[in-house]
Computed example of a mutant assay.
Amino acid sequence: MSARLKVAIIGPGNIGTDLMIKVMRNSQHLEMGAMVGVDPASEGLQRAARLGVATTAQGLDGLLALDIFPDIDIVFDATSAGAHARHNEVLQQHGVQVIDLTPAAIGPYVIPAINLEAENASNMNMVTCGGQATIPIVAAVSRVAKVYYGEIVASISSKSAGPGTRANIDEFTETTRAAIEKLGGAQRGKAIIVLNPAEPPLIMRDTVFVLSEPADQAAVERSIEQMVASVQAYVPGYRLKQRVQFDVVPPEAPLNIPGLGLRHGLKTSVFLEVEGAAHYLPAYAGNLDIMTSAALACADMMARRRIAAGIARGLKEAA
């Protein structure tokens, strides 16, 4: 088996183009096979063609018709939640691994710092940019204490929110909320996204509020710092903006958590920022960079597994 697997990207917008650059520059196990769009004048399609990548402006049907399609092992879908359902259905019929960068959430949620090594589904959902940035923090608290409630606020530059993001705001909040509970371990979750129109554009900022049972503050802080280091392994611009903040909520003055009732314990507040690597997008677009970086980490892991399995089969047949 080849030391690299060929991938295709559906959606030549900002996310798809940045992902293409990351595959070509940073991946150890992947190589670009095709870029897929619907607009022949798309800047992303034109850039891909200049870089020698096969392109089609006929959408998924065009990808299926390309000579290179039989060699495609992994497809990244960077379109929309609505379009992803058909894309996934067709690609699964062809046995293609799908990495979903939309909020469709057909497959299991995957955040590399939390569950990448344990996941092996044929469709993997990258949650949302806000989820990739904040849910690791909720999970870090969950490693130390039971989490009653996790709330995240993702603030991104309006300029880094393309038409896909804007069309999927409802899906963003619902998918992120569900992943706060599923991967973060919170009993209840809430997600808010803010599109900031400030000029010059501001870097992505994220705030995480967690209410947990009483816990050792030093242990919680250590767990969060370890989780931040794990995310930085594939998103170098991910960092704490300031030290973790703690407030003790006493039993005599509990907080009312919708759906759970009155709870007391430890409130943990974490303030993050995400600076993009500026491979294609500007550095302030950390919200897009963390999605493409997470997707690349996911696909590289899948490729590594498949290559290793192919080598193992080859050795077995040779014996």
Score class of each variant (00 low, 15 high):
V53R: 07
A309M: 06
G237V: 08
R205H: 10
T207F: 13
A145G: 05
V38L: 15
N287G: 15
L101A: 02
D77P: 00
V7T: 14
H84G: 02
E252Q: 09
F76E: 01
Q46K: 15
K241I: 06
P282S: 11
K241C: 00
A215K: 04
G16Y: 03
R188A: 14
V147A: 06
V23W: 01
M126E: 00
N120I: 07
A140S: 04
G164K: 03
G184H: 07
A133E: 04
L30S: 03
G11E: 01
M32D: 01
S122W: 02
T165I: 12
H94F: 14
N196S: 12
A3S: 14
R143P: 01
V38W: 02
Q58L: 12
P214S: 08
E43C: 10
V274W: 05
K22T: 01
I307T: 07
D67R: 13
P108M: 09
A105I: 01
G314S: 12
L262E: 13
A118L: 11
C298F: 00
S142C: 06
A278S: 13
A57H: 09
V270H: 06
A229G: 03
Q58C: 04
I74K: 01
S293A: 15
P70D: 06
I203S: 11
G131C: 10
L66D: 10
R50C: 03
E275P: 00
L281E: 02
A104I: 02
S155H: 09
T102W: 01
A294S: 15
I72Y: 00
C298V: 09
P70M: 12
S27V: 08
Q93S: 14
N256H: 10
V244I: 15
G13D: 06
V208D: 02
A41C: 05
L315A: 15
R306C: 08
V141D: 02
D216S: 04
A318S: 11
